[in-house]
């Protein structure tokens, strides 16, 4: 999952980005002002936008309105240092999904960010279940049947993303866009290697392949086909 953080207070942006990377393992891009935020959001590869209100060039509320105006459906979490209910109502009515008042708790920010991402993918339960594969997004643990499966952070992120989009073909490009921030070199063969490892760990020895590779198109999570047949 990839997050766009628009915050002009650089020290705060650094701390939030580190926390989101270290905690739920999100990819985070930072923008220092509204203009840069608008540009980056235009890539449409974000699962969540965290927006400060007081920003140079374009302020947070205007940026939010611009985003919603051009049809961007990405969940937006507002960071505000301003009190008062009217401004919060105004924010939510402008298309914000949630807000946090500064100074906030980093743990709460992470939990809210995850909840918004989950909702954005159409899920309510933080535990994702497809057939016998269970991904606990809070603990970041994976099990299949009775068996716990140890995954590397990248493998976990790939699986979580696929779990949010079952039975849909997910291209390598989509995976790259949603799992890495722009500081990373994009190499599709890195993805291939990770998917291959993930598949091995998930399937063990006996079961049917859980992740299908469609050459030139991408990957598809196939868990559950056994039962439906």
């Amino acid at each position: 999952m990839r997050v766009l953080l628009v915050e002009d207070e650089i020290r705060l942006a650094e701390n939030i980005a580190s926390a989101l990377r270290e905690g739920p393992g999100l990819a985070v891009d930072c923008a220092e002002d509204g203009e840069m935020g608008l540009d980056l959001a235009g890539n449409l590869c974000y699962d969540l936008i965290i927006l400060d209100l007081m920003l140079p060039k374009i302020d947070g509320l205007s940026l939010l309105r611009l985003l919603r105006g051009r049809g961007d459906r990405t969940a937006v979490l507002i960071l505000t240092a301003k009190g008062g209910h009217s401004s919060i109502v105004e924010l939510l009515n402008a298309g914000a999904d949630d807000y946090l008042s500064k100074p906030f708790d980093l743990g709460e920010l992470i939990a809210r960010a995850k909840a918004l991402i989950r909702r954005g993918k159409g899920n309510a339960d933080p535990t994702l279940r497809i057939s016998d594969v269970v991904v606990n997004t809070v603990e970041q643990t994976v099990s299949r049947g009775e068996e716990c499966i140890e995954l590397s952070p990248t493998e976990y992120r790939i699986l979580e993303y696929l779990m949010h989009r079952p039975r849909v073909v997910v291209s390598k490009r989509e995976l790259l866009e949603h799992l890495y921030d722009y500081n990373w070199e994009h190499h599709s063969n890195v993805i291939e290697a990770h998917v291959s490892n993930l598949r091995k760990k998930l399937d063990g020895t006996s079961r049917q392949p859980s992740i299908e590779t469609l050459r030139g198109r991408g990957y598809r999570l196939l868990v559950g086909r056994e039962e439906s047949q």
């Binding site: 207070e9 701390n15 905690g23 240092a81 500064k102 100074p103 708790d105």
Partner: peptide
Amino acid sequence: SDAAHELKTSVAVVKSSLQLLSMK
């Protein structure tokens, strides 16, 4: 309002720095 914003942001920086440090 501006002062509150600045101070809240400053507090947020300090708080988040310490929380980040104690995350793990």
